[in-house]
Design a binder for these strands. Sequence first.
DNA 1: ATTGTAAAAGAACGAATGTTCATTTATAAA
DNA 2: TTTATAAATGAACATTCGTTCTTTTACAAT
Lengths: 211, 211
Amino acid sequence: MARTFGSSGEVTAARVRAAALELFANQGYAAVSMRAIGAKTGIQASALYNHFPTKQAILVDLLETHMLGLLAAWEAESQKFHTPIEALDGFVRFHISYHLDRQDAVFISYMELRNLEPEGFVRIEKLRKYYEGFLRKIISLGKANGDFLVDDEPVATMAIIAMLTGINTWFRNNGRLTSSEVEEIYVKMAFGSLECQYEQRNAVAKARAIA
Amino acid sequence: MARTFGSSGEVTAARVRAAALELFANQGYAAVSMRAIGAKTGIQASALYNHFPTKQAILVDLLETHMLGLLAAWEAESQKFHTPIEALDGFVRFHISYHLDRQDAVFISYMELRNLEPEGFVRIEKLRKYYEGFLRKIISLGKANGDFLVDDEPVATMAIIAMLTGINTWFRNNGRLTSSEVEEIYVKMAFGSLECQYEQRNAVAKARAIA
DNA sequence: ATTGTAAAAGAACGAATGTTCATTTATAAA
DNA sequence: TTTATAAATGAACATTCGTTCTTTTACAAT
């Protein structure tokens, strides 16, 4: 056989991405063979090379697509917020909901960095730092105007991101909690970790309820 | 050549563990070959089988040793504390210092679970749950007596452990902060995330200063 | 209708994988 | 001093790996 009825480059490439994403997330990049990706896509391993030059290129594509999507989504969402307290509230909710909707992509983004060859690594790492910079800036502004009482902004940034991203290790759809219940809990914990007072937070909650 | 001058089973096995630990942490279980482990140990790959029956057995040995060591160390350390506030303070400091001293082991313990075959996985997972149970109990007791204001104890447990374990992704010896400076910051953030009031925490700090 | 190209199959490549085996030598016990 | 065993080597095993190549067929444009 050869070219298959109804086959289209873009469609197949998307199916390859989806297949690779799920396999990498479940078994790890190194443990997944091109034959396995091909099988899940429904084509032979050799046909993968019509869409991606190497296995490594598939991984880089997945990570880069994920990070660029994340950055774009937050840049849009962040327009809504005008104070550090609003922004932190929004960031926590955004991070949780965005990441819970993309558990596989998040997983490989944090786990497969070491499987990237140098060029890919620096590209992805730069995007990650950029994202962390958003939260750091929120914390810095909040510290400057007295909303947050925090000793070390870079550390607080990493602590909160780790706390949030860790949700992916235990959260299950149709589990005990819904995504928005989880958001509620983590918003409270994030503000607490920055020693932000009750009254200020309640003002945000009130504004949210009115809007 | 054959048996090497001065070779001893226990000594070699320990060197194999050390070599595998470093390689697994840096490259991932699947990406490390038995030949690479052998080379780093200073023996041939085939000689590894005098000490471990399979590659998988090396991984299980490393994970199990790490978790059992962690549990034993906390069970000893925890004897020192008699209130939830003392215990949380102690747990945070213990977790950070223990994990920062064993970065490679921690890394593979959280990253290579998916590379475990089922029998090994349940063994290790049980030990992890057991460790998480210690923190959960501290939080539950603190909630019961009013020290901590927390909505969901299991979630708070996972959030704090994720926050603490995430330190390993960015902390570097001889970096900007010392291990004990990091402890200080995270103790404060952990208490904050549980809405524990200043006065109570300061009592602990005072007691610590006196002792 | 013809033609150029895109997308697939399937065989094949050399290299690397985890593991086994026969063999050799050091060590410890009798 | 002899003997059993522990610890190593090095060759070899069948598989699997990522990738390349040739060939076949579907599709789009002329």
